[in-house]
């Protein structure tokens, strides 16, 4: 468990960090909370020549309400989110998801930005980001660019952040309490075998569903969303609609869950997440 030789830099500002990335190109890797990168390096599955630690860049760690939206800095830890009163009031899905990530040590160090950029197919955040239609602000040598959640999670372990770029912050909408996250956990790793985030908008009679752990990348359960669009969120309707949670998806398969079981769990967890959200209707 000893990584290959690497150089380490710890820039004080985002500009400095971008400078390092520009200089070292694909040989550089950004270190956020380190909960994916460090294990991969210790296994030597990742052997960057330079590690750019962005942990001391102060203005990347915040949770604020700005212009009618929630803005969360990329270096905000899972625990910051789990314990944020602002989020509990205004975007309660996030603390609910954060609470189910790893264990307390992981949540104290791991960051939302690191997790999203790593784009682990079983990470918890992508489900919530998709369900909330989050917007990611990526900054690079040519300035900042916004990327919608649906475009951000490109593929397994691949996000829209290109080499040379850094995820700066995530913008999310304010929501009502009618949200829910239902996670079926892989016992060994604590990652999701099927994690479903549901956001229910009662006024518009619409729901959005983000699903993680089931396929090579997190996805929106479009079939479920359209089945429930405009319809009453009764137990029966939710039950029927949830059956579409894995439609058109090529589920992953491993020793913890076959593709068939994963698809089944996607449906079960979708139903549970929706029921949870609906149970929170005033």
């Amino acid at each position: 468990m000893i990584p290959a030789m690497f150089d380490y830099v710890r820039p004080a500002t985002l500009e400095e960090a971008l400078g390092h990335l520009a200089k070292y190109g694909e040989d550089a890797k950004v270190l956020a909370g380190g909960h994916s990168l460090i294990p991969a390096m210790k296994l030597r599955l990742s052997q960057p020549k330079v590690v750019v630690d962005i942990g001391r860049i102060g203005d990347l760690r915040f949770i604020e309400e700005r212009d009618g939206k929630i803005a969360i800095g990329a270096m905000t830890t899972h625990y910051d989110i789990e314990s944020s009163d602002l989020l509990k009031r205004s975007c309660p899905l996030l603390p609910e998801v954060a609470d189910k990530i790893g264990d307390i040590q992981v949540r104290n160090k791991g960051t939302i930005g690191g997790s999203c950029v790593h784009a682990d197919p079983a990470g918890d955040w992508p489900a919530a980001m998709l369900a909330l239609d989050a917007e990611f602000e990526i900054t690079g040598p040519r300035g900042s660019r916004p990327v919608a959640a649906k475009d951000f999670f490109v593929d397994m372990l691949t996000s829209a952040v290109e080499p040379g770029e850094i995820l700066k912050l995530i913008r999310l909408p304010l929501t009502a309490k009618t949200v829910g996250y239902a996670k079926f956990t892989q016992k060994a790793s604590g990652f999701a075998i099927a994690g479903v985030a549901a956001v229910v908008d009662k006024a518009r009679k619409s729901v959005t569903i983000g699903v993680t752990g089931v396929a090579a990348k997190a996805y929106r359960a479009a079939g479920v969303e359209s089945a429930l669009s405009g319809s009453e969120l009764s137990t029966a309707n939710i039950g029927t609609a949830s059956q579409k949670a894995a439609d058109g998806v090529d589920p992953l398969s491993d020793i913890h869950a076959s593709a068939e079981f994963r698809a089944h769990l996607a449906c079960v967890q979708t139903r549970r997440a929706l029921e949870l959200a609906v149970s929170r209707l005033p």
């Binding site: 296994l43 599955l45 197919p121 593929d155 397994m156 090579a216 992953l252 491993d254 020793i255």
Partner: peptide
């Protein structure tokens, strides 16, 4: 070896990709 030991959940998806 190592990839089988630590990467089993992703191997099939990587192969497909």
């Amino acid at each position: 070896g190592l990839i089988a030991q630590v990467g089993s959940r992703l191997v099939e998806a990587v192969g497909k990709k």
